[in-house]
């Protein structure tokens, strides 16, 4: 899932300068799980903005809505009536959701209420850890199910480095060394031999270095005729 956290309220207020009517939009998917942009967070931020408006005499109209999934046009399209009449959308969805909103409502300014951080998972209630580096060329089968791109601070493919001390990373004594974790995971599954297999340099064009990535699943793509018959976008 995508992990994000809310921007400080004063920064959101700064972005709202010049706007009068705003719709706070949340998402019930990833950002609800990481307690950053679900229905509850939307209602809290909306209430805080209403107080801010009353305090400063801004006269803001603050409305709220939470979508099932803000990264899909079908769901985002459903709030068209709600968006009408607002001059700004404060997105409490991830950066993907915010962009889909801007795409669907090009005449309304979309402001990011969250800082989108990473692809991770909840470690325990309230603690979220980055798990996947999204490199586009997965090597988890060689690394005991632990991502060296995300979990090693240097994203080393053949670690560990000399900064690994007592299972911790040199960047912070509280950060576990990714390659120490990989070693112990391989040990548990009886595949320490994989530590000896050099992982060749990656083709980073499949990661961020190759520009925006696009995946096309030919079997799912609709022809223009199919699109028009089904009323699809």
């Amino acid at each position: 899932m995508i992990i994000a956290e809310q921007k400080p309220i004063p920064r959101i207020v700064e972005m709202l300068e010049g706007h009068k009517s705003m719709l706070v939009v949340g998402c019930r998917s990833c950002v609800a799980i990481c307690l950053a942009g679900g229905e509850k967070e939307v209602s809290i931020l909306s209430e805080a903005l209403r107080i801010e408006s009353d305090l400063k005499g801004n006269g803001w109209q603050v409305d709220e809505v939470t979508l099932e999934r803000a990264c899909e046009k079908e769901w985002v399209g459903e709030m068209r009536e709600k968006v009408s009449g607002h001059d700004a959308i404060i997105s409490l969805a991830c950066g993907v959701g915010a962009q889909v909103m801007q795409e669907l409502y090009p005449d309304v300014r979309v402001l990011p209420g969250l800082d989108t951080s990473n692809m991770g998972a909840p470690e325990e209630q309230g603690i979220y850890l980055e798990k996947c580096g999204g490199c586009g060329d997965c090597v988890l089968h060689l690394t005991g199910g632990i991502c060296p791109i995300a979990r090693c601070s240097k994203s080393l493919l053949n670690g560990p480095c000399g900064g690994s001390q007592n299972g911790k990373c040199e960047i912070d004594p509280d950060v576990p060394c990714g390659w120490d974790q990989i070693y112990h995971s391989l040990e548990r599954i009886g595949r320490l031999d994989l530590m000896e297999v050099p992982i060749p340099p990656k083709d980073w064009r499949r990661s961020r270095s190759g520009g925006p990535r696009k995946i096309v699943r030919k079997e799912a793509v609709l022809t223009p005729e199919e699109k028009s018959a089904r009323g699809a976008r």
Binding site: K40, S43, I44, E47, A48, R50, I51, D54
Partner: peptide
């Protein structure tokens, strides 16, 4: 109790 309840009371 929700944080919203507290803020709403203040507002």
């Amino acid at each position: 109790l929700d944080v919203k309840h507290v803020l709403q009371a203040v507002r």
